[in-house]
């Protein structure tokens, strides 16, 4: 059987996913998010802080509208409660965590099987071609430009080259497997810690 690195990463990500989703402690969820971001960044996916901070702030502020728990302070006539803040932060963290976990899962470029997979590779091949041709085009009249672009694909057939048929070797697979077992274990340990009394003790002052 031909196991691929990409598949291992995909499955591992699916195993880690519920550990983030079901996390009950904000603190440990934050650690999980940092972990997921580091994994994504390590495998060359982009991370920008600002959009994530904006996301965190927006989601948190919007959630403040449903009061829940200890009254901390007011923004205008709107009471800001600890519980509402926490709910907002939790939702935003879950989103960010899943986002980067997903980045990690596709970082080894998994291939869809069968006809759909071939169709997707064809799509990506066309994207490269479009980008290339579009760059050399006069874009002042966008309608004509798009028309010319699409017409330029009429006469020819894109050749499907199967450039990526490399088989991952045993040692690579073993290493990938080992790493991912550790990642999964750590994600679930963070989940268990988050559900334990430790998290309650740490969070108790917020309620």
């Amino acid at each position: 059987m031909n196991v691929k690195r990409a598949d291992i990463r995909l499955v591992a990500g699916l195993v880690m996913l519920p550990a983030v989703l079901l996390q009950t402690s904000v603190l440990f969820q934050f650690v999980q998010v940092c972990y997921a971001v580091s994994l994504a960044v390590y495998f060359k996916r982009r991370f920008r802080l600002l959009p994530n901070v904006l996301l965190l702030i927006t989601v948190t502020l919007v959630n403040v509208f449903q009061p829940n728990g200890l009254h901390l302070f007011d923004i205008g006539s709107l009471p800001v409660t600890a519980g509402a803040l926490l709910v907002g932060i939790r939702k935003a963290l879950t989103l960010i965590g899943l986002l980067y976990l997903s980045q990690y899962m596709v970082s080894a470029k998994p291939k869809f099987p069968g006809a759909l997979g071939r169709l997707l590779s064809m799509q990506f091949m066309y994207v490269d071609q479009i980008a290339e041709r579009w760059a050399s085009m006069d874009k002042r009249k966008p309608i004509q430009a798009i028309d010319t672009l699409l017409l330029s694909f009429e006469s020819e057939n894109i050749l499907m080259e199967n450039h990526d048929e490399s088989v991952d070797t045993g040692p690579i697979i073993l290493k990938e497997l080992r790493c991912n077992i550790i990642h999964c274990a750590l994600f679930w340990i963070l989940f268990i810690l988050g559900s334990s009394a430790l998290a309650d003790t740490l969070a108790v002052y917020l309620y």
């Binding site: 509208f65 728990g69 200890l70 009254h71 409660t81």
Partner: peptide, 23 residues
């Protein structure tokens, strides 16, 4: 409509807790 649902305010000493009445 944003003030939305009535809220239950619970005061005890210096602290106040606020909850949405529909939950």
């Amino acid at each position: 409509n944003l003030s939305g649902n009535p809220t239950v305010h619970i005061k005890s000493g210096a602290n106040e807790w606020i909850y949405d009445i529909v939950h």
